[in-house]
Write a protein that binds this DNA or RNA. Structure first.
Length: 566
DNA sequence: CCTCCTTTGAAGTCT
DNA sequence: AGACTTCAAAGGAGG
């Protein structure tokens, strides 16, 4: 957990922060940007070289050599198809029209459905994975944000948004559930209300009367209360768990929400195949999790599950691939990528990710907390769905990566590769540099920035932080303590090379909070993501002062890019 | 077609 | 326990 301080990672984190701040000061002036950038570039390059020197052979086969613990089920794909088909059919005649998303449940909001249709940038399965889950998730984070008592200004809640639909990029992301506006029409089911006491953390989730209602446009009285099997999803007693629309049950993970009362309902909608006890990889519930992705499906861009796709024999021999649950940043990326792409002319994901990384750091703690909380839920749900799954299962599924090498070996082919990349990158970045700058400039001079919550502390209490994952211990505001700017990103490679893994450096126990306890202004980034693109302009001196670290992030990559090849 | 790049974070393995 | 590695998303680029 990045944000947490204390513990072993504390020192590292602290160091990072210090360094980062130092750099901030150095980079405050744009004029000197190039100079520093050059220096940084040199550093980065050298680091890259050093890094690349090291691990040539080891990583290669390592992952692949690893034994696969999990036996694969041939039936998985088949079953999955059945599910897809069945679900698709359901939806065809269902409440919402989003035929393309079989697993897509009640969370479907009319105006949000389109993006999911064919040309979304996200893989259907991936999208479905998250989207399907949201309905089940209670979102404390949202509560925190929406909570009037929270210092977080309303505009913050809009940040997670809805990415412009105009761009036909998939806007709907899990996080939209955090945004009031998205759900305004519907009434959130009470089961999603934050008014839950976290079973593990014991942290009460502040309920909001106004929020207790509907997240989904479901007819309240249709089905009645449904007890949720997952403890952390359990709403308080007396509240309606799930309202099922008369038209049909759309729960992404029916089994999760299924109890005696609704089992019949669900079962009636599922083909016998679906009820068939799944083999290993299929979740015990019999419901395929979106995280499970077969290569074939994974690559299927359209997300359209045409009938022809189902029942493909070849799927039988595919190994089910259960993806890792997305972490907070990944969730953020999914959410914001389209937006960034829309705002900028950037197309290369690497560049986009750099921007996203900076933006991520520029997010307020509250905002990050939302994502951390979402990620936590993701992991929880994932673990619920796939009790036996381990991240290790996916090791070796990808071709190994060559980065993150130790600095001590000598430069070999890899160095070249990295170097080349940086050069190439520069070239490319030059193209979109202007727009990137524009869109990427964080705080900018928008007045709204000033309105950003001045006091993080309160909100901090709310969302769980990226806490000990599995243990799910109380995640006391790890987020709050998280250092806003880390050297990490601009020297991500260095950081990694130095053994500063993100998690390590970041991990901290919220309690100790020794180091970076939200320093009021300077440490607190102004969330610029909430700003409309048009509002994004070069930061005023004032804002720069306030958020010099932003400037750091901004200028660095760009300068690197723009800098003439050395 | 496959891999890399890039980002952060989680979780794995290794020492 | 700490260091290190892999994977998660994404899509252009390069081999």
């Amino acid at each position: 957990m990045p944000q947490l301080n204390g513990g072993g990672g504390d020192d590292l984190g602290a160091n990072d922060e210090m360094i980062s701040f130092k750099d901030e000061g150095e980079q405050e002036e744009k004029i000197s940007e190039n100079v520093s950038a050059e220096r940084d570039l040199d550093d980065v390059k050298s680091s890259l070289v050093n890094e690349s020197e090291n691990n040539s052979s080891s990583s290669d086969s390592e992952a692949e050599r690893r034994p696969r613990t999990r036996p694969d089920s041939d039936v998985y794909e088949k079953t999955r198809d059945y599910f897809s088909e069945a679900l698709r059919r359901q939806q065809d005649g269902g409440f919402f029209k989003s035929p393309h998303y079989p697993g897509y449940p009640f969370l479907m909001i009319p105006d949000l459905t389109n993006p999911y249709l064919s040309n979304g940038s996200l893989s259907p399965s991936a999208r479905t994975y998250l989207q399907m889950k949201w309905p089940l998730l209670d979102v404390p984070g949202s509560a925190a944000i929406k909570d009037s008592r929270s210092p977080t200004p309303g505009h913050l809640s809009n940040k997670v948004p809805v990415v412009q639909h105009a761009h036909h990029v998939h806007p709907l992301t899990p996080l939209i559930t955090y945004s009031n506006e998205h759900f305004s029409p519907g009434t959130p089911p009470s089961h999603l209300s934050p008014e839950i006491l976290d079973p593990k953390t014991g942290i009460p989730r502040t309920p909001h009367p106004s929020e207790l209602s509907p997240y989904y446009p479901l007819s309240p009285g249709a089905v009645g209360s449904i007890a949720h099997p997952l403890g952390w999803l359990m709403p308080q007693q007396g509240q309606h768990m799930y309202s099922i629309p008369p038209g049909g049950f759309r729960h992404p993970y029916p089994a999760l929400a299924m109890n005696a009362s609704m089992s019949s309902l669900v079962s009636s909608r599922f083909s016998p195949h679906m009820v068939t006890p799944p083999p290993h990889s299929l979740h015990q519930t019999g419901i395929p999790h979106p995280a499970i992705v077969s290569p074939a499906i994974k690559q299927e861009p359209s997300g359209d599950l045409s009938p022809s796709m189902h029942h493909k024999p070849l799927l039988f021999d595919k190994k089910p691939h259960i993806k890792k649950p997305l972490n907070a940043f990944m969730l953020y990326m999914k959410e914001m990528r389209a937006k960034v792409v829309a705002e900028c002319t950037l197309k290369e994901s690497a560049a986009i990710n750099q921007i996203l990384g900076r933006r991520w750091h520029s997010l307020s703690r509250e905002e990050q907390a939302k994502y951390y909380e979402l990620a936590r839920k993701e992991r929880q749900l994932h673990s619920q769905l796939y009790p036996g799954w381990s991240a290790r299962d996916n090791y070796g599924k990808r071709k190994k990566r060559k980065r993150d090498n130790k600095p001590d070996s000598k430069p070999e082919g890899k160095s070249f590769l990295l170097l080349n990349f940086s050069i190439r990158n520069k070239k490319q970045c030059v193209q979109y540099l202007p727009s990137e700058k524009m869109c990427d400039s964080p705080a900018s001079s928008h007045g709204s920035m000033l309105d950003s919550p001045a006091t993080p502390s309160a909100s901090l209490a709310s969302p769980a932080a990226p806490a000990a994952t599995h243990s799910e211990q109380a995640q006391p505001l790890s987020l709050t303590t998280k250092p806003e700017g880390r050297m990490h990103h601009h020297f991500s490679v260095l950081g990694k090379a130095s053994g500063l893994s993100s998690s390590q450096s970041a991990h901290s126990t919220g309690t100790s909070g020794s180091s970076q306890p939200m320093t009021p202004i300077l440490t607190r980034p102004i969330p610029f993501t909430s700003l409309p693109p048009s509002m994004l302009s070069p930061p005023s001196p004032f804002h720069q002062a306030l958020h010099s670290h932003h400037a750091l992030f901004q200028s660095q990559p760009l300068s690197l890019v723009t800098k003439p090849t050395e």
